[in-house]
Design a protein around this nucleic acid. Structure first.
Lengths: 142, 142
DNA sequence: CTATATGCAAATAGTTTGCCTGTTA
DNA sequence: TAACAGGCAAACTATTTGCATATAG
C-alpha cells in the first residue's frame, strides 16, 4: 500500500468527521501502519519523534484518540498497563503471548463474530465484539 | 451459598497454593461474592472498610492479586481505567454497557469457547479466552 | 482570520514498592 | 518463632488537563 494511499484514507476520515489534517496526525498514523506490533503511546511517541522531533507526548495521545474516534485504529487493553494501538481494520482477535508479552492478530473466519453474538440474550445490542486469547505461541512471530 | 462454604473454598485454595488464611483475604473475597458488580479495587476497599475499618488499600490490592492467583477471581479490563474484579467462575463473557458503564456477565453455552479456540492456527496454545461485548443493554440489570 | 491543534508543564488516577510491625501456622 | 501478611507513605506509571502559541482551512 503506497504511503499516499493511507494518507488519503486518513484525510478522508478526518474530513468526514470535520477534523483537520495535520502533519502530526499523518505521521502517527503512518507509524502505526508501518509497524503493526501494537505499540503503546510511548512507543509511538519514540517512533514519531525521529521524523517529527518536536512532537509532544500529549499530542501523540491526542492523535491516537482522534484516530480511534475516526475508526481507523483500535485501542486494545490485553493486560493491565498502557493501552496499545492496532490499525488492523479486518475482523480479528488478539492472541497475547504471556511468554513474550507480544500480541498477535488472529484473522477470524466470516460469520464467527455473528455466531458469538448469537449467544447474547434478547436486550443486549452489541456494537462490537472483542476476543482475546492468552497463552503460549510457538509460532515464530507476526 | 452459606458464608462458611465460600470461606471453606477460599481456605482450600489458599492452602493448595501454600498461602495463609487471613481475615483480610476472607472479607475481600466475601465482599466480591456478595455483590458481583465488577467493582474496582477502590470500591472493594470501601466495602471492606465497613467490616474491617483498619484495612489499607495496599492490602486490598494484595488480596485481590492473591485471589486472582488462586483462580477464584478474574481481573477484567473492559475499558481504560481501573481493573475490575469478577468472582464468577463459570465460563462467561462480559457485556459492557456503554451507556451506564456497567458490565454484565453473559453465560456461554457449552462448547462455545472451544469453537472460538478452533479458529487459532496451529502453534497458538491458549490457556484462556476472553470475550467482551460492547454496546447498549436494554435489559434492566443483572 | 479564527477555530482548531500543538507543546509544555503541572495535575491526576491507579497501582506498586519499601520498610517496619503484626500475625499465622 | 520464623516466614508470611498487613499498614502506611512515598514512588511510579500512564494519562489528562490548562493554557499560551502556532497553524490549517
Amino acid at each position: 500500500m503506497p504511503a499516499a494511499e493511507t494518507t488519503d484514507a486518513l484525510n478522508q476520515r478526518l474530513a468526514d468527521s470535520g477534523l483537520r489534517s495535520t502533519p502530526q496526525r499523518e505521521v502517527v498514523y503512518r507509524v502505526l501502519i508501518g509497524k503493526r506490533d501494537h505499540p503503546t503511546a510511548d512507543e509511538v511517541f519514540a517512533r514519531v519523534k525521529s521524523e517529527l522531533p518536536t512532537i509532544s507526548l500529549a499530542t501523540v495521545y491526542n492523535c491516537l484518540e482522534t484516530l480511534v474516534q475516526c475508526d481507523l485504529v483500535r485501542a486494545v487493553n490485553v493486560e493491565r498497563g498502557p493501552t496499545r494501538y492496532c490499525p488492523n481494520l479486518r475482523p480479528h482477535a488478539h492472541f497475547h503471548d504471556e511468554k513474550t508479552g507480544r500480541t498477535h492478530d488472529i484473522d477470524l473466519p466470516p460469520g464467527l463474530l455473528d455466531q458469538v453474538k448469537s449467544v447474547l440474550p434478547p436486550g443486549y445490542d452489541p456494537t462490537s465484539v472483542e476476543i482475546i486469547f492468552r497463552g503460549k505461541a510457538t509460532k515464530p512471530s507476526s
